[in-house]
Design a protein around this nucleic acid. Structure first.
Length: 837
DNA sequence: AGCACGCCGACT
DNA sequence: GTCGGCGTGCTC
């Protein structure tokens, strides 16, 4: 059996095979044979290069090594083993397999999400002139364009397609390459390129002879007397690297940059190198700056001590504990204590945080305690930085990781504790691309695989979590006092309609909210204004006929962004100019309707011209350190009012905030989703928690058109249990989670009718599956078209038994692949979302 | 997903 | 005539 490179492996004494996970959307792993030269080294978690199909070369991960030859086909041989040690461990492979089966996706998709792209080697086609080819005397006639390519290749050893394209910009390059290949004028081959590159530091040190014989050094100084600049370099070097006290120090050398920063001239350093006084060398260094530990002992208050003991006590009988602590109750110290304990026992710890919370002082706080042993894993890290964290976990440099949901995929081998902070956060659920996993649930599974403990921390538990407490699956610890006995904020409901009638509503602000803002400003206190909608106005409309500009590709109105003076689609990013005239009736009476953060910011500056106002939403935090800059600015006290979307509900801990205003609570409350109540409770409670700390009681003002809503009483009294009891009644009655398991299937196609028929047929197939279930739909999605694809949704409610779920999912996956083999539905996309949000 | 093979329209 | 469109079938 020949492979792409014409290698022909002999049958080995031991026939060894490996099941390989490949980054392709096909359910299975693929079995390759293991050549004799790598049989002793290969194992689970190594990266390999394999030929997949006729031409493609892929990097895969070994999932299993065995001796069972496949019967149905002849296995190809692995082309290359890429690592000296496994880059993924066996527990991770188990974890991947669980994710793929629970969330109904392919192993390859999990692998894609799990491996930092710096570890995903890619191959690149390289082109070189055929060694037997003679440009002056070709076997076949060449046309002008072919000659251009050959001349370019003559000068270079090898080139990739891109390089060739820039050098010889002809069209149909690929065609020409093909014909040249046929004429045996060139060779095309695949080469692997490693993406990760370590950070290199250029250093200098004294040549060895000056170290071994110290009088040499004195001679040297005599020799360069008068050459002030060179002398300066040497003196600076000896000052930083005191070799007289410890001659070994010279080996480490000194970064060239330190010398130049200290005012040494680069050219005199070079001269010294040239004269063999100094030698230059390169070392790999970390991309992360060293951190100093600040040895402040962690002191727990009595309440915290009690909670900490309670958690430990719950761990005796339960592996997962919900730490239900109101905002400001001081969960962080408990985390720190738990983490320290586990680290001392030699196990690893993972602390998951929602994205935004990672940029705050919590991280720097933990850094001061754990220093360089703690690795941070952001979503905004570069590929190289991610690879360094990954390698740091393998090497043991980091035994504690604090990170976003994707840090679950780091190569832990002995976790002792996983903490999921703000466990109720919807952003823990990944929606696109697959795997569509919930980081909290996946974390619990991962902890189970490691026989580790899990702590879920929040002020407002997700119903799924709290019901597991009620069912006695999770342990429960409550902290209901604010740290240092700070008081809870005072809530006020402001009736929007009432104020409107009395003409007291000005630019979206009720009289009460305006007065309280003024009061805060007078007292030099800070204000947070929450409006969960970005842009200037959710839409614009013609006053004469009611026409509303809509997105060309999606079924939504365009949001007006005043700052950029454009209309924008929040679903596909489509942008359009603001129309001067109505496209329907030609009237020029076009007005903006509703308010997003941009308009709220503008309104505030009209109402409070003296106030310094900042806005925090997706549009102002797009850059790498966007959040941080705004948070720092706000923290510095140079800002009076911060307007923002849900971003401001977490991670902000500023003592000077005394007032929180919610511009439109109804918008959260009346969102068409069974979780809207739960979400409103969480969001309002969270944002309210930002008001008032330490010695000052804060105020929270909720503007609503329906102040009679029961939920407000429950939020105001902080009565989570009562709210939970009420809502659960409804959930039970209408078969909503956590009483059932939900699966959502989105059927997408560019043709409305095709999408519709495909989804109807799928529903029929699903209905035939045995077992208790309710299937709703297909129904046009809330937003019926996104990016020119029509969307239909099917909702499935399953009973909670694990076995029934596993069976249903298997049948469902089969039904979908059956449908996709129907040629009418070949281009229909079926997207399965287990436990959707 | 990608990539090859295979069978029909508008062009050097 | 051919190039190249994308329908369909397969990948260890």
């Amino acid at each position: 059996m020949d492979d792409l490179f014409g290698n022909n492996y002999p049958l080995t004494s031991k026939n060894l095979f490996a099941d390989i996970i490949l980054p392709v959307p096909i359910p299975q792993t693929f079995t390759y044979s293991v050549g004799p030269e790598i049989q002793d080294e290969i194992g689970i978690g190594y990266r390999v290069m394999v030929q997949f199909g006729r031409k493609r070369i892929l990097t895969g991960i070994v999932a299993k090594v065995h001796q069972k030859a496949p019967e149905a086909y002849q296995a190809k041989a692995i082309l290359d083993l890429l690592d000296d040690f496994p880059i993924v461990n066996a527990l991770q492979i188990k974890f991947w397999a669980w994710l793929a089966s629970y969330y109904c996706c392919h192993l390859g998709e999990v692998m894609n999400a799990a491996l930092p792209s710096g570890l995903k080697l890619s191959t690149e086609s390289k082109i070189q002139m055929h060694p037997d080819f003679d440009l002056d005397n070709p076997d076949y006639p060449m046309d002008d364009r072919e000659m251009l390519i050959l001349e370019a290749l003559e000068k270079k050893e090898e080139m990739n397609v891109d390089q060739l394209d820039t050098l010889v910009p002809v069209k149909d390059l690929h065609k020409l390459i093909k014909s040249l290949l046929a004429k045996k004028a060139i060779l095309v081959y695949e080469s692997v390129k490693e993406k990760y590159s370590p950070k290199i530091e250029l250093r200098v040190r004294l040549a060895q002879e000056y170290i071994t014989a110290s009088d040499k050094l004195n001679e040297l100084f005599d020799g360069i007397k008068g050459k002030v600049k060179q002398e300066n370099v040497l003196l600076k070097y000896l000052q930083q690297v005191p070799i007289y006290q410890k001659s070994e120090l010279n080996k480490q050398g000194l970064a060239k940059k330190i010398l130049t920063d200290a005012g040494c001239s680069p050219s005199s350093i070079d001269t010294l190198i040239k004269n063999k006084v100094l030698e230059s060398f390169k070392v790999k260094i970390s991309r992360f700056d060293p951190i100093n530990i600040d040895e402040n002992p962690i002191l727990l208050s009595d309440d915290q001590k009690e909670a900490y003991d309670a958690v430990q006590n719950e761990f005796n009988s339960k592996s997962t504990v919900l730490l239900h602590g109101i905002t400001g109750s001081g969960k962080t110290e408990i985390y720190i204590k738990l983490i320290m304990e586990v680290l001392e026992s030699g196990s690893q710890v993972l602390l998951l945080l929602p994205e935004i919370a990672l940029t705050t002082h919590l991280v720097s706080r933990l850094q001061k305690v754990f220093g360089d042993k703690m690795g941070i894993f952001h979503s905004k890290y570069s590929d190289n930085e991610r690879v360094e964290v990954w390698q740091g976990v393998i090497s043991g440099k980091y035994n504690f990781i604090i990170g976003v949901r994707s840090s679950l995929f780091l190569p832990f081998d002995s976790l002792g504790l996983v903490i999921v902070d703000e466990e109720h956060e919807p952003s823990y659920k990944q929606y696109d691309p697959a795997p569509r996993f919930h980081a909290r649930d996946a974390a619990i599974m991962m902890a189970y695989l490691h026989q580790a403990k899990t702590v879920l921390g929040t002020a407002t538990p997700a119903f799924e979590t709290f019901s597991n407490v009620q069912n006695d699956k999770y342990g429960y610890v409550k902290m209901d006092k604010r740290y240092g006995n700070a008081e809870l904020p005072h809530f006020h409901l402001a009736d929007i309609l009432k104020d409107k009638k009395k003409n007291l509503l000005k630019l979206d602000f009720t009289r009460l909210l305006r007065e309280k803002i003024q009061e805060a400003l007078n007292n030099q206190e800070q204000v947070l204004i929450f409006q969960n909608r970005r842009g200037y106005a959710p839409y614009i409309s013609c006053d004469e006929c009611g026409w509303i500009p809509e997105c060309e590709h999606c079924d939504v109105s365009l949001t007006y962004h005043q700052f950029q003076e454009e209309l924008r689609c929040h679903y596909c990013g489509f942008k359009d100019v603001v129309p001067k005239k109505c496209h329907a009736c030609g009237s020029d009476k076009i007005t903006t309707v509703g308010s997003g953060t941009e308009r709220i910011e503008e309104n505030l500056s009209l109402l409070f011209p003296e106030a310094r106002i900042l806005r925090m939403d997706l549009d102002t935090t797009r850059s790498k350190y966007g959040y941080q800059k705004i948070l720092e600015e706000f923290g510095s006290g140079n800002v009076d009012i911060l307007v923002g979307t849900q971003m401001i509900t977490k991670g902000l801990d500023f003592d000077r905030v005394s007032l929180v205003g919610i511009v439109d609570a109804d918008r959260i409350l009346f969102y068409p989703d069974f979780r809207s109540g739960e979400r409103a409770f969480q969001q309002i409670t969270q944002v309210a928690g930002r008001a008032g700390r330490r010695n000052k009681t804060g105020n929270v003002i909720i503007q609503t058109r329906r102040p009679d809503q029961l939920i407000f009483n429950q939020i105001i009294s902080g009565d989570y249990a009562e709210f939970y009891r009420q809502e659960m009644g409804e959930r039970k009655q209408f078969y909503y989670p956590p009483f059932v398991k939900n699966i959502k299937i989105v059927v997408k196609h560019k043709d409305f009718k095709t999408a519709e028929t495909a989804s109807v047929q799928l529903k029929n197939l699903l209905s035939d599956i045995e077992g208790r279930k309710i299937i709703l739909g297909p129904e046009k999605a809330l937003i019926g078209k996104i990016k020119n694809l029509y969307l239909f949704e099917i909702w499935i409610k399953l009973e909670k038994s694990t076995n029934a779920q596993v069976r249903f999912k298997q049948e469902m996956t089969r039904s979908i692949s059956d449908l996709q083999s129907d040629k009418r539905f070949r281009s229909v996309r079926f997207l399965v979302d287990v436990d959707p949000f």
